[in-house]
C-alpha cells in the first residue's frame, strides 16, 4: 500500500514469523504420530512390495502344477500348501496381489475422481444441472452395484481392464452422492461468498474453497472403496466375470477353495486373510490420513 508507514499506530512489534511448513510435511508428520495409521501403512507397504516383487520372490511359478500333490496342507516345500490343481498357494497369492490391488486401487481412484467432479459441481451449482446429474446417477444406483458390475462386465467381456471399467462405473454414483452432500454443506459458508466478492473464478471457488473443505468424507469413502472394490472384483471373479484362470486373483482363489472348504480349508483361508489384512490396513491408513489432513485437529 502507498500509505505504508503512516500506520505506525497500528503496527505491533514483528516477531520472527513462524516458519511455514508445506502442507505435505505437516500431513506426514501428523500421520506418523498416529500409531494405527503407521501400522496400517506398514502392512500395506509389505503387501504391495510383496506383490510387486512376486516374479522374483515367489518360490514357484503361479501356473506350475504338482498334480501328484494336490490339496496338500502347509509343508516345508509349500509354505501355505497347494490348491486343488496342485499349484503353490503362496506363489499364487503373491501374483494375485498384483491383479487384486491394481483393480481395487485403480477403479476406486477413477470412480472417486469422476464421482467427485460430478458431485462437487452438482452440489455447487444446484438447480437444473444438479437435478439432471443426480437423476442419471439415480438410475445407476437403482441397480444394485454388484448387478451393475456384472451387467457391465458381461457386456464388455471378461478380463482385467473390463473389470476395472465395470467397478469404476458402478462406484461413481456413490462417490458422487457423497461429494455432493459434502460440498452442499460447505457451499453456504460465508467464505464462499467472500471468494465471490474478491472475483475468484468458479473453478477456483469449487476446487480451492469448496472441495478442499469437503474432502475429508470423500477421502474416507475412497479408502473404504479400495477395500470394497477388492471384494467386488473377488465377487466378479467368483461368478466367472473377472480375471480369468489361470491368472491368479485373491477373490478367485477364495471362490475356488470354497468347493473343498470342508476338507481343505487352507486353500480358502490364506487368500481370505490377505484380503482382510489389505482391507484393514487401507482403512486404518485412510482414517489416519483424514485426521492428518484436517488442519482443525492440528495440535
Amino acid at each position: 500500500m502507498e500509505q505504508n508507514g503512516t500506520y505506525s499506530f497500528l503496527y505491533t512489534e514483528d516477531d520472527e514469523s513462524v516458519k511455514k511448513e508445506s502442507m505435505f510435511r505437516i500431513t506426514m508428520k501428523r500421520l506418523l504420530k498416529n500409531k494405527m495409521a503407521v501400522l496400517g501403512g506398514i502392512i500395506l507397504i509389505i503387501i504391495v512390495l510383496a506383490s510387486l516383487l512376486a516374479p522374483w520372490i515367489s518360490p514357484y511359478d503361479y501356473t506350475y502344477q504338482e498334480l501328484y500333490n494336490v490339496n496338500a496342507g502347509p509343508s516345508a516345500e509349500h509354505w501355505l500348501g497347494t490348491d486343488s490343481l496342485g499349484r503353490d498357494i503362496l506363489s499364487r497369492l503373491l501374483h494375485g496381489g498384483r491383479n487384486s490391488l491394481t483393480i481395487g486401487i485403480v477403479s476406486t481412484l477413477l470412480s472417486a475422481l469422476a464421482g467427485t467432479a460430478l458431485g462437487a459441481t452438482a452440489g455447487y451449482y444446484g438447480g437444473a444441472y444438479d437435478n439432471v446429474v443426480m437423476r442419471i446417477l439415480d438410475v445407476f444406483q437403482a441397480v444394485p452395484s454388484m448387478l451393475l458390475a456384472i451387467a457391465i462386465s458381461a457386456t464388455l467381456g471378461t478380463g482385467y481392464i473390463n473389470c476395472i471399467i465395470a467397478l469404476t462405473i458402478s462406484g461413481i454414483p456413490g462417490s458422487a452422492r457423497m461429494a455432493r452432500a459434502s460440498c452442499m454443506g460447505v457451499r453456504n459458508q460465508d467464505y464462499i461468498e467472500a471468494a465471490v466478492s474478491i472475483n475468484a473464478s468458479e473453478p477456483r471457488i469449487i476446487f480451492k474453497h469448496v472441495l478442499m473443505n469437503a474432502l475429508a468424507p470423500i477421502f474416507v469413502m475412497a479408502t473404504m472403496g479400495v477395500a470394497s472394490n477388492i471384494l467386488m472384483s473377488a465377487s466378479l471373479s467368483f461368478v466367472g466375470l473377472g480375471v480369468q484362470p489361470p491368472e491368479a486373483e485373491w477373490g478367485a482363489m477364495v471362490s475356488a477353495g470354497r468347493n473343498v472348504l470342508r476338507y481343505y480349508p487352507h486353500i480358502c483361508i490364506s487368500p481370505a486373510i490377505i484380503i482382510m489384512l489389505t482391507v484393514l490396513s487401507i482403512n486404518m491408513l485412510g482414517d489416519g490420513l483424514r485426521d492428518a489432513l484436517d488442519p482443525r485437529l492440528k495440535q
Partner: peptide
C-alpha cells in the same frame, strides 16, 4: 503491508483461522 495495516503480527501469518 496489509497485515500491518490491520494490526496482525507477522508471527501469525502462517496460522490457520482455528
Amino acid at each position: 503491508a496489509l497485515m500491518r495495516l490491520v494490526g496482525i503480527d507477522k508471527r501469525i501469518e502462517n496460522s490457520y483461522p482455528h
